[in-house]
Amino acid sequence: MAEHLAFTIQNRERIQAVESSFGRTGKMLQKPGRFLVGEGCLQKLCRRGPQPRVFYLFNDILVYGSIMLHGRWNNKQNIIPLEEVQQEDLEDGMAMANQWLIRTPRKSFYVSAESPEEKIAWMGHIEQYRTLHVKNKGLPAKKSGDDFATPWIPDVASAICMRCSKRFTVANRRHHCRRCGYIVCQACSKGRAVLPHISNRPVRVCRNCKNDMTDGMRQVQGKMRAKGNHWKKNSVEDTPTMPEFENSSDEENENADECHQVPTKWFQSQEEDSFSAYCYIKPEHRNPPVGGH
Results as ranks from 00 to 15, higher is better:
T150N: 04
S165A: 09
K142D: 09
M162N: 04
A141I: 11
A159Y: 00
F168V: 04
W152M: 07
D146G: 00
P154Q: 05
S144A: 07
D146V: 02
P154R: 06
D147W: 06
A159P: 07
S144F: 07
M162L: 10
P140T: 08
K166A: 14
F148I: 04
R167F: 10
C164E: 10
T150L: 00
S158R: 10
R163T: 14
T150H: 06
D146M: 02
W152P: 00
G145S: 15
K137N: 12
D155Y: 15
G145L: 15
L139E: 06
K166D: 14
F168N: 04
I160A: 11
T150Y: 01
R167Y: 10
C161N: 09
A171G: 12
I160V: 14
A159N: 07
S144N: 13
W152N: 04
D147H: 08
V156N: 08
V156I: 07
P151E: 01
V156L: 09
A149G: 00
R167M: 15
I153H: 03
N172W: 00
G145C: 10
W152S: 05
P151L: 01
F168K: 03
D147K: 07
G138K: 15
I160R: 13
S158V: 08
C161K: 11
I153L: 06
K137I: 03
P140R: 10
T169I: 05
G138N: 15
P154T: 05
D147I: 01
R163P: 01
A149P: 00
R167H: 12
K166S: 14
N172F: 01
F148P: 03
P140C: 10
K142S: 10
D155P: 00
V170W: 08
L139M: 14
G138T: 14
A149W: 00
V156F: 15
S165H: 10
L139Y: 11
M162D: 05
K143Q: 07
C161S: 08
S144D: 12
C164K: 12
D147P: 00
S144T: 13
T150Q: 10
G138V: 14
F148M: 02
P151I: 01
G145H: 11
A157W: 06
P154Y: 08
N172S: 03
R167D: 10
L139S: 07
K143P: 01
M162I: 01
G138F: 13
